[in-house]
């Protein structure tokens, strides 16, 4: 599944009747190469809320179903992967991130699609405020 497919999906919880909101972005943990949090927003004027990936029961089709709506203890840094600049380990730019493929069951990242080609997930080194750093390959 792709990050851009998940963005905008309604988030539904078994405890509540209506949807909690729509997904604004997925936060990734580069060290474990997996999706760590889901960010969602109730409406355009409401604040963003964060749910840990463990709370997600299933992604798709048409909605993200969550088990619980408990917020995580520690908020992850807000580094959106989509649109981020990509730098190789050698310090050369490698385009920007267009999309990310991930496994919706486990949340594992599979590949990052950049404006200059595909980067497999095992080449990711770090994600910070400036860039996504990838191993030269």
């Amino acid at each position: 599944m792709l990050f851009t497919e998940v963005r905008g999906l309604p988030v539904v919880s078994p405890a509540e009747a209506g949807p909690l909101g729509t997904v604004t972005s997925l936060t990734v943990d580069i060290a474990s190469r997996a999706v760590s949090h889901v960010r969602l927003r109730g409406s355009r004027l409401r604040r963003e809320t964060v749910l840990p990936w463990d709370a997600v029961h299933a992604v798709g089709p048409g909605a993200v179903r969550v088990r619980s709506t408990a917020a995580p203890d520690t908020l992850p840094p807000r580094h959106d992967l989509l649109g981020r600049r990509v730098l190789t380990e050698a310090g050369a730019e490698h385009g920007t991130v267009l999309d990310v493929a991930f496994d919706p069951e486990a949340g594992r990242l599979l590949a990052v699609f950049t404006t200059r080609g595909e980067v497999s997930a095992d080449r990711l080194l770090g994600l910070g405020d400036h860039a996504l750093v990838v191993r030269a390959g």
Binding site: I30, H79, L87, E89, G91, L125, G126, L127, G128, D129, H130, A131, L132, V133
Partner: peptide, 10 residues
């Protein structure tokens, strides 16, 4: 030229 850590932070 920016100084960037391998973690991606400038």
């Amino acid at each position: 030229r920016p100084v960037v850590t391998l973690g991606g932070d400038a």
